[in-house]
Design a protein around this nucleic acid. Sequence first.
DNA 1: CATGGTTGCGGAGACACTCTCCGTTTTATG
DNA 2: CATAAAACGGAGAGTGTCTCCGCAACCATG
Lengths: 186, 186
Amino acid sequence: MQRKPRADAQRNRERILEVAKEAFARHGANASLDEIARQVGVGPGTLYRHFPTRAELLQAVYRAELEKLAAAGQKFSQTMAPTDALRAWLFLFVDTIAAKQLIAPALNTLLGDPKKVFEASYAKMHQAIRALVKRSVESGDIRGDLDPMDLLRALIGVSNVASAPDWQASARRLVDILIIGSRPVG
Amino acid sequence: MQRKPRADAQRNRERILEVAKEAFARHGANASLDEIARQVGVGPGTLYRHFPTRAELLQAVYRAELEKLAAAGQKFSQTMAPTDALRAWLFLFVDTIAAKQLIAPALNTLLGDPKKVFEASYAKMHQAIRALVKRSVESGDIRGDLDPMDLLRALIGVSNVASAPDWQASARRLVDILIIGSRPVG
DNA sequence: CATGGTTGCGGAGACACTCTCCGTTTTATG
DNA sequence: CATAAAACGGAGAGTGTCTCCGCAACCATG
């Protein structure tokens, strides 16, 4: 028999996510976890029970955003020409980083660490970009010999938080550079 | 009147750089500075006197490597066709990160933080890539509307330490993708 | 409601890292 | 040597991480 989950635990979990998102956006991926707990009004123990490691908290904070992104990929796949869909999705990726204050270093951790390969968000992002690239490969617009994730990694490199104020424009130009450069030779 | 600099200070400075390079390669850019001092056999105070901040130490550690890279850029510029030179230099960049265990996050700090724009190493790298791209623009191989540094940032994104074991191959493919994709339209 | 079993809370505290201050030691020079 | 300048070292204050466990809050049940 399953007992109903405690209401206070649920409340705390949500409050932690809110405050953490704010803190990560303001202070970067190394924001103090004890400080987040203090702002929420709970003890450090509570925070660490819900999210045993910094990585898990970061991931929980951005999971919704990432899954929305992955879902958008599916929709683009079904409603647009292959390479248009890919291009649109990469643009959306850039916009999401900019608008939702997704912090690039955090994403880097998520996309870069092989230990997290089987992690839910990673898997969905991976599947999204792979499906988009696959369609473009089949339609003959893109070579088949590249790791789709590299396109995202390249964008993340440019989306570094600390970079110049016009990084978003740079990133959008880079999207086209990557797509044009990925055409089959000949 | 100038006094001859003390021999022990010089020795310590060099030992710190050696040990720090090792420590950064092994533990990443957040390696403990006190631990580095301990391994060198000096007090923390000594380390912090020579290198007041982590960034300055990182930079001192990699300055020689970066300046070598920048110098190679000049040589390529003078001895090769424009776009061959650019390509060769980007390859060398990737190889240097791989071989010398230059850590990508550290470079990211160096290239990403606008506060360091006037820093010596940054300036030299910036000048190198700018000169190479400029020649390719003039020869008609590359568009003029992109920030040369973005090419490096994109490579760094892929060169993330934690990424897959074949990142080097990915990075080399990415070099060509970036160059092909940077051709003028039409 | 009252009660009891369970779940979750909170914060004290051990440990690690950062960075500074200043008494002591080492060095270069006359 | 003697002396002043330069550099050293490590104690220690401040901050962050993470754990442990006594205690409080909560959900089910009669």
